[in-house]
């Protein structure tokens, strides 16, 4: 039986989608949850959906150093952290420029790396703690137009592996998950660049159809719990069978 009882868990990108679902599920399993996101209103909605008491929210921008410092200063040591904040940008390589590259990398990679670094340096991770990085199946594919998104997620997966080595002696684990397409507001954004019809057609490539946030949430609950205490440095695909094809 998976339990997160008495665990203090931090979830970034919790104002919607996968992050919100992770926060809800962790609270249902007994965790005290701190949620972080950029949109105050939607973050408030997330916190109203949590079970139990003592949860905290921070409406901050993790790409701003002083915002991270505020979170760090007010944090108690965590037993688990889910690095979920991320953005997607569809752009052919031909149209890339410095700004486009850094906007994706700062949010998807740099911010997550800096946050984990500060948590470690300030000793805000408990022994036997679990770090989970939300990467993407895109990091293993070559879908046209996803170069920066895919590269930033691949960087995150690699970072998690090195971190797993460096933290193993403290009993702290680090893993990454690579979801296929999950129905969220962010993937709805894909309809900006592909028609609804094409999006529907693409779903037929998924033997089990597109995923729900709770499908990824279930795997992450396992990774946060002590049931996965022998798992570290793994990069786990969860994609409804997409890569079988």
């Amino acid at each position: 039986m998976i339990t997160l009882k008495d665990k203090n868990i931090l979830v970034t990108g919790a104002s919607s989608g996968i992050g919100r679902q992770i926060a809800i599920m962790a609270s249902e399993l007994g965790a005290t949850v701190t949620i972080v996101g950029r949109n105050m209103e939607r973050l408030g909605e997330t916190i109203s959906l949590l079970t139990g008491t003592g949860h905290k929210m921070y409406s901050i921008d993790l790409s701003v150093s002083s915002d991270i410092d505020q979170l760090i200063t007010e944090s108690l040591p965590y037993d688990g952290v889910v690095f979920n904040a991320g953005i997607v940008e569809y752009l052919p390589v031909k149209f890339l420029n410095d700004n486009k590259i850094s906007s994706v990398f700062v949010t998807n990679f740099d911010s997550n790396v800096i946050l984990s670094q500060k948590l470690i340096k300030k000793k805000l991770l408990n022994k036997k703690g679990s770090l989970v990085f939300v990467s993407s199946i895109s990091s293993k594919l070559g879908v046209p137009g996803t170069a920066m998104y895919a590269a930033s997620k691949a960087a995150l997966s690699s970072f998690s592996k090195v971190l797993a080595s460096e933290l193993a002696s403290q009993g702290i684990r680090s893993n990454s998950v690579c979801p296929g397409i999950i129905r969220t507001a962010m993937t709805e954004q894909a309809s900006d660049v592909v028609s609804q019809e094409e999006l529907k057609k693409a779903e037929s490539e998924y033997p089990l159809g597109y995923g729900e946030p709770s499908d990824v949430g279930g795997l992450i609950m396992y990774l946060l719990s002590d049931m996965s205490k022998w798992m570290t440095g793994s990069d786990l695909i969860i994609d409804g069978g997409f890569t079988l094809k």
Binding site: Y90, L91, P92, K94, F95, P144, G145, S191, D192, V193, V194, S195, Q196, E198
Partner: peptide, 18 residues
């Protein structure tokens, strides 16, 4: 995707898949 990117770059217009 290139057409969408071109519309954005040249005309600051968000063209959609639809």
């Amino acid at each position: 995707l290139s057409l969408i990117a071109m519309a954005d770059e040249e005309y600051s217009v968000k063209l959609t898949g639809d």
